[in-house]
Design a protein around this nucleic acid. Structure first.
Lengths: 204, 204, 204, 204
DNA sequence: CATGAATGAGTCTTCATTCAT
DNA sequence: AATGAATGAAGACTCATTCAT
């Protein structure tokens, strides 16, 4: 029976995380009450405290769960592309397009996390870890492209990788606040044009 | 007599805004108490309410004061450059470098504002207005470059402008959280390289 | 289980109302703090808000509970009297005597309510509804007396009814402020004499 | 110059009292702020404290000024009527009609006073003194009528007097809350009918 | 005398967390 | 395990009163 209990527990935790996410995205972390989360997840407040040690624990877990996976996701989705150009294209797609389309909430969650990061160093560290993870992976992709001679030799792999992540998060911010003000398709095209223009060897 | 009073009033307001900014940046908006602000600005709580209608009024004013001026600033600093290449270069400088150096707090204030924007449409509107203002100006710069034949004819002025602003805010986010993880000089260089590569006519 | 909970809830609400009433009568509504009520009812401030939506809700409920029942009470207590003279006598008794004797606090509560009525239209409406309810019932009693020929034909039923209610509340005011200044027995006798003198047919 | 100053002082005090009265009538005593009164009377808050020792002092003075005069007024207005019937008629007129017409605000001021009387014994004593003053005068009128043989011998002068005052205040309450629910003319007629019926010797 | 800026205790209300059942 | 009533500390805001100018 411990197995059943384990499953049960995991399901409950997930239900709570899902409920919390929805409300955090709508009202932000601070304005969300524990009661809100309890009601939405169909549990009692008391029960909630059996699965999480408190409100902030829910946010932390949620971030780990939602944002922590992005680097893995990135790696998985680029794995089957062997040409550097295709790989970097995938990165752009994932950031600027795919991620938003599949998980439109990620953006707002990011905002929530950033807001909390100001006062909570655990949250801040989580965000920076995610940043580093993403940057490191993209940097590797770029460096492989340089090594293979397909990318221009003096490209700044680290900085370009950082810029792409910063750009992605910047776009996410505005897109989640007012999705009508940005046209993702044109953004994708333009970003790719810039990246291609920058990385092409003949440009040097 | 009115002069003394007016000056006094302005000074007080400024003191309150300064105090509030410092604390907001450290703990975020929600975690900052009105009392915190009062103590730091050397006033009593009651006095504070003579200058602002409430806590949210302080944030709003602060945003207007700190963030609202960016479009104007941008315009002023680019005004004396007549070559499109120089103008766009200035824009990049201002965003990615100058602004951060001069007002390192702007980034964190942006985070605070974004966090509040989730629940407060007034704040959200303020941020979007700022975005539109910045984008519109940069777009004009680019379009002038295109018209003059110095920029490639089929460049997407609107999207590029948006991207630069998103990028700037994305960089700001991470830079304000951990300034050591980004090297602004290399960022500037790289961004300019990309923009130049993208906008150069011979590339088409 | 619901039964226990319901009973519990009712008891708690009643305890709060009782506590609030006592303090309102002593200090008036505005000077009573929510904390006062909480302490006296043996609950915490927070608990209080589980039963009432706020301080004003307590007053409103209290009025409904204490004053709102008067019309029903009047009807019930007059129901078994079939002679118009006896019915009107009962009305006078209830107002001028019985009610005060049984619920000496009603008067002060009325004062509290009147005071709040100045600024709170909900309270004002409640008081006027009570007035109308009482007047309407007494008017019916008088009209039946007129129809049966036992009361003088040209008596002004509506106005007399209003007067009796106004008189009752006026007496209540002074009696609750200083019960020794009024002798209820003599009042009853005198009011009945006046009513009898006014309503007797032979007077016309 | 002391004379000028004295006049000035009196005028100021009067202006403050007038302003306070208007606002008290509209919002009640507790909800009225000292600032409200200052603004309306065209003075500064500070100045106000040179004429009154505080907010409650204003209310007390106001009551003395407005309500304290009623007994005198009553005496003056009945003085030139020598027939007991006319005198008692005047009393009714003054209460039920004249007073309301000339000073419609008296009623609400009475409410304000009653509300404060709950916590402030000075106010309560003032109200009771006013009550006693009025009752005593009317009682004298009635007793003179009895002595002259024009009123029925066994009339209860004291109680009738009290009843008339209670009735007047009761009517005032409802009339000031909703003047449309009471028709003063019909009230006057009916009250006089009752009084006449009660006091007429032939009725005994 | 007048001003009105400043004070700060006091109010209502919310909400994360606990714990008896 | 689950419930949800109870807690009580904390927060935003108000306002009678004072006092430097």
């Amino acid at each position: 029976m411990p197995k059943v209990t384990e499953t049960h527990k995991r399901r409950r935790r997930q239900a709570i995380l899902d409920a919390a996410e929805q409300i955090f995205l709508g009202k932000g972390y601070q304005s969300t009450t524990v009661d809100d989360i309890a009601v939405r997840s169909g549990l009692s407040v008391g029960a909630l405290y059996r699965y999480f040690s408190g409100k902030s624990d829910i946010l932390l877990t949620l971030m780990e769960d939602r944002l922590g996976r992005t680097p893995d996701l990135l790696e998985r989705l680029t794995a089957d592309a062997h040409d550097p150009w295709e790989q970097i294209g995938r990165c752009v797609d994932i950031f600027v397009l795919a991620l938003r389309v599949r998980h439109p909430s990620t953006g707002r969650l990011l905002i929530v996390a950033w807001g909390e990061a100001l006062q909570d160093s655990t949250v801040r560290d989580g965000l920076l870890r995610r940043f580093t993870g993403l940057v490191d992976y993209i940097r590797t992709v770029i460096q492989r492209g340089i090594a293979s001679g397909k990318f221009r030799r003096d490209a700044d792999a680290k900085v370009l990788a950082s810029l792409l992540v910063c750009l992605a998060d910047g776009v996410t911010l505005y897109w989640s606040a007012n999705s009508s003000s940005l046209e993702l398709q044109r953004i994708r095209t333009t970003v790719m044009s810039m990246v291609r223009a920058y990385l092409s060897p003949e440009l040097a």
